[in-house]
Design a protein around this nucleic acid. Structure first.
Lengths: 175, 175
DNA sequence: ACTTAATAGTTAAGCAACTTAACGACCTAC
DNA sequence: GTAGGTCGTTAAGTTGCTTAACTATTAAGT
């Protein structure tokens, strides 16, 4: 690690400098979490290649599969893109046969995007090894261990949520 | 959950259908892992906004900070983009003052990308809450619990790596 | 009932970031 | 010293996003 050898002489408490000297295994857990993030990203990209769709369209399919058919306006915020971009994504999914548009039963302005069953099945088959693998790993733990892991993951979630809130608050206060 | 009501009558063992009926807490752990993935993605985007860089450039900065200065050719595979695209990313980082190009000391073909200390400090300050938060959460665990969590995360990593290998193998065998 | 305003989806024009291919500069080996 | 490979950059083209404008439909006001 050859960074920040000069600079940053002292300006507050800094427990984590490079990778945590104080608790070797504690730092290791952070590394594992980061590794999982990288692996899950890699896996998603692999999955996208398998189904011949780009990242956005794959994510759209995931939402359509996990939450069921929905309108473009509902989908857009889940994808974090504009309404118009969602139209393009749906266009691509329809063109490649992964989904179809259906009129909304009561509101004629709306369109419902329905994932095609074969595509759902293919996505599921590709996802299953990971879903099952993680579920099995968790299921294989004795219940107390499962609770310990669950509690730790909950605390990690709290950390992220806290950091995001702090960041949002700081955005409100332009200093 | 209104999906796959027809189709998929039976074609093999399927333990995880919607969200794991057999082991409620086991499924919960999978959900937690997914939540952590989503949160860390959201946090990265927030961080990118804070430093006024896009996702790619932020990831480049992270690699430059965590692994130290490196050449574009080393950076490109870490970003998962082409060499040429890395040139553009570096151009942007240099233009915004987050990094600078330096000639390689021995090989005059190469350029070394060096992150600017102030940008490193800013990124660090923004990252610290999460880094420290996770490290603290891990450090607060009694050692046996830490081992339990570490072992579980290791098994999750194995699951992903196994799935990626299987996917790669299947790509070789065009069926 | 008719007009006004709001909502849903799409289209249009423009922009940002990627790709592959081709280049000049440099290193390495024969 | 020349031949071939590597490094970074440039060029041309593609993809996928954005905002703004437009059409169709619904909801609300009078």
């Amino acid at each position: 690690m050859t960074f920040m050898e000069d600079e940053r002489k002292s300006e507050g408490p800094r427990r984590v400098q490079t990778a945590g000297h104080e608790h070797p295994t504690a730092g290791a857990i952070g590394n594992q979490l980061r590794a999982i993030g990288a692996l899950s990203k890699a896996f998603e990209q692999h999955l996208g290649r398998t189904l011949a769709v780009n990242d956005t369209d794959l994510e759209a399919m995931e939402h359509l599969i996990l939450s069921g058919p929905m309108t473009p306006s509902e989908l857009a915020p889940k994808l974090g893109i504009s309404n118009a971009a969602t139209t393009f994504s749906v266009d691509r999914l329809v063109a490649s046969g992964h989904a179809r548009r259906e009129p909304h039963p009561t509101d004629r302005r709306k369109t419902v995007i329905v994932p095609s069953p074969p595509s759902v099945a293919r996505a599921f088959d590709a996802l299953m090894p990971v879903l099952n693998g993680v579920a099995d790993a968790a299921a294989d733990l004795p219940p107390q261990h499962r609770d310990i892991v669950g509690a730790f993951l909950a605390s990690v979630i709290d950390v992220y949520e806290g950091a995001l809130e702090a960041g949002a608050a700081e955005a409100d206060t332009p200093a």
